[in-house]
């Protein structure tokens, strides 16, 4: 049982180290970003034609303090 705990933790620790190295190297982060393909090149000339997924976000001010 002791060996199981230690071995499991050693594997877990190795996985954490590997995941951290991969995340640091590839620039991984938790930020939710939509990846959209085939954006029309006309967007640069007519930026208002681009419709973002985030455009439907509801923006309301609920007040300060």
């Amino acid at each position: 049982m002791k060996l199981t705990w230690r071995a499991a933790y050693a594997v877990f620790a190795a996985a954490v180290c590997a995941a951290l190295s991969w995340a640091l190297w590839t620039g991984w982060w938790t930020m939710p970003v939509d990846k959209i393909a085939d954006v029309p090149k006309s967007v640069r000339d007519n930026p208002g034609s681009y419709r973002s997924h985030y455009a439907s976000y509801s923006h309301r001010y609920y007040g300060g303090k």
């Binding site: 970003v33 085939d38 973002s52």
Partner: peptide
């Protein structure tokens, strides 16, 4: 023509 789309308030 790949876009990374996000919002920030």
């Amino acid at each position: 023509d790949v876009a990374y789309d996000f919002g920030d308030e």
